[in-house]
C-alpha cells in the first residue's frame, strides 16, 4: 500500500518573476486516490502541470516509479504511464469523438491493445459510442468530460492526474464524475485529483493535501481532513 509511485520534492515554480509554488513536497502511493484542495490561485493546476511536464520547476525534483522525471518533456511522460486530464477538458473540438480517443492512444503501438482500450472506454461510457462520429465540439459539457476521461484511459495509464473534472457541470453530472473517478480507481489506476469541490473530493480520496498560496499547509487522511475544523471552515463551507 505504501509504495510511493509519485514523489514531489520541494518544487518551486515561477511564472516569470512570480513564484507560484514555494517549495512543495508530497507523495502519491500506488493505488491511492490523493486530492489537492485549496482556493483559486493556490497552485493546484500549476502543480499538475509541473508533474506532467508542461511547466518546469526551478528547484526541486519529481520522481515517478523511481525515475527522475523532472526534466522529461510532456509528450514522453504519457509513455511512462502518467496521463493528465486537463482543466476545462480540452477535447479536440474539430475532431470526432473517435478521433479524440485515437489521439488518446497516440503513444500505444499495439493495434489490438488500442482496440481493447476502445472497447473498454465504450463499455464505460456508452454515450461516447453512440456519438463516436460526432464532432467533439458539439458534445455537452458532461459528455466532453467523459470524452476527456475516456481519452486518458486509452493510453494504458498507471496514474491519472485530473484537474477540476467537475468544473462547470450540473450537480447530477458532478455525481456522475465522482462515480467515474471511483470506477477508474477500481481498475487499479492511481489518481491524483485537483478539485474545487473539496467535500466530494475528500469523500473519494484516501489522503489529501491542502494548498494555500503556493505552500502545503495541511495534509492527512481524507476522512480526518473532512472533519478538521479549519478545513471545514475554509473549504467545506460549514
Amino acid at each position: 500500500m505504501s509504495e510511493a509511485l509519485l514523489q514531489v520534492e520541494n518544487i518551486e515554480v515561477y511564472y516569470g518573476l512570480i513564484k507560484a509554488l514555494k517549495g512543495i513536497s508530497f507523495t502519491v502511493n500506488r493505488g491511492e486516490v490523493v486530492s489537492l484542495i485549496g482556493a483559486n490561485g493556490a497552485g493546484k493546476t500549476t502543480t499538475l502541470h509541473t508533474i506532467t511536464g508542461l511547466l518546469r520547476p526551478k528547484v526541486g525534483k519529481i520522481t515517478y516509479n523511481g525515475q527522475d522525471i523532472t526534466k522529461v518533456p510532456a509528450h514522453k511522460i504519457v509513455t511512462m504511464g502518467v496521463v493528465h486530464v486537463p482543466e476545462g477538458r480540452r477535447v479536440f473540438k474539430d475532431l470526432s469523438v473517435y478521433d479524440n480517443l485515437c489521439l488518446g492512444a497516440y503513444t500505444v503501438q499495439n493495434k489490438e491493445n488500442i482496440a481493447d482500450n476502445l472497447a473498454m472506454v465504450y463499455d464505460l461510457f456508452p454515450r461516447l459510442e453512440e456519438r463516436k462520429n460526432q464532432m467533439s465540439g458539439t458534445l455537452s459539457g458532461g459528455e466532453q468530460q467523459m470524452l476527456a476521461m475516456g481519452r486518458a484511459l486509452m493510453s494504458n495509464p498507471e496514474m491519472i492526474v485530473m484537474d477540476e473534472p467537475s468544473m462547470g457541470l450540473s450537480p447530477l453530472l458532478v455525481n456522475e464524475v465522482f462515480k467515474i473517478i471511483e470506477t477508474v480507481h477500481s481498475r487499479n489506476i492511481t489518481v491524483l485529483l485537483v478539485e474545487q469541490n473539496s467535500k466530494k473530493a475528500l469523500a473519494v480520496s484516501d489522503r489529501a493535501y491542502v494548498l494555500e498560496t503556493g505552500n502545503i499547509i495541511m495534509e492527512g487522511k481524507a476522512s480526518d481532513l473532512a472533519n478538521d475544523e479549519r478545513v471545514k471552515k475554509a473549504y467545506l463551507g460549514a
Partner: peptide, 19 residues
C-alpha cells in the same frame, strides 16, 4: 490527427503524447 490536435490545442496535444 496529431497535426489537427497541435493546431487546435498545443498543450493538450502534448498531453496525448504528441511531439
Amino acid at each position: 490527427r496529431a497535426m489537427v490536435a497541435v493546431s487546435e490545442d498545443r498543450g493538450a496535444a502534448q498531453l496525448m503524447g504528441v511531439n
